[in-house]
Amino acid sequence: MFLGTYTPRLDDKGRLTLPAKFRDELRGGLMITKGQDHCLYVFTRDAFTEMARKIAAAPLTNEAARVFQRNLFSGTDEQNPDGQGRIMITPELRRYAGLAKDCVVIGAFTRVEIWDAQAWQQYQADHEDEYAKAREGVLPGLI
């Protein structure tokens, strides 16, 4: 399970140091792919494989499924963190997410998300009011 918010920096070689709390779970390898909202998603290999099987099962006759499959699978990179917990973010994935130096890495329970720091701040500002309202639709009667 991935939780929390961290602020690592992307180095000049395009490497990002994963939060220490996430390293054990990602030590066996990970998959980095394009996420929604121009962030990157990081999954364990097992979680990605499980998700990919479900996505690949969509009928080829469904145009939306083809678009999603093509974008997801063509933009995925398999990584193994080095001894210092660093991963290499490909130039294409850095471009997609607008990553420069300052990044935000968040735990999103089943996945890790990597954001450009300014994009994350803007996303938070744009959606702050929606968070309070969404509780009723997402968690009716639980909180």
Rank of each mutant, 00 (worst) to 15 (best):
Y41N: 13
T33M: 03
T76E: 04
P59N: 06
F68P: 03
C103R: 01
G35A: 14
A65S: 14
M51T: 03
F73N: 12
M31D: 01
L99P: 06
I87W: 06
Q69H: 08
V67H: 08
I32T: 08
V105E: 07
I55N: 06
A65Y: 02
R66F: 10
V112G: 01
I55P: 01
L99G: 10
A100H: 11
E63S: 14
H38A: 09
E113D: 11
E78Y: 10
Q69C: 08
A64W: 02
Y96N: 11
I55C: 03
Y96W: 10
G35Q: 02
N62V: 14
G107D: 11
F68C: 02
A47K: 12
W115N: 04
R70I: 09
I89F: 03
D82L: 07
K34Q: 15
M88A: 12
R70H: 13
D37V: 04
P91M: 03
L93R: 07
A58I: 05
R95S: 14
Y96I: 08
A97V: 08
I114T: 03
R86Y: 07
N62I: 12
Y96C: 05
V112E: 01
R95N: 15
A52L: 04
G75F: 13
H38K: 15
D116M: 04
L40S: 05
D102Q: 08
A97S: 06
N62L: 13
N71S: 08
A56P: 07
G35H: 07
D116R: 11
S74W: 07
E50G: 15
R95D: 15
A58G: 10
P81W: 02
I55A: 13
P59R: 09
A108W: 04
I55R: 04
P81N: 02
F109N: 12
D77M: 05
A108H: 11
G107S: 09
M31F: 07
D102W: 01
M51F: 12
V104N: 00
L60E: 04
R95M: 02
T110K: 14
V112D: 04
K54A: 14
T33N: 08
K101E: 12
R70K: 14
K34L: 09
G75M: 11
A57R: 09
D46V: 05
F48Y: 15
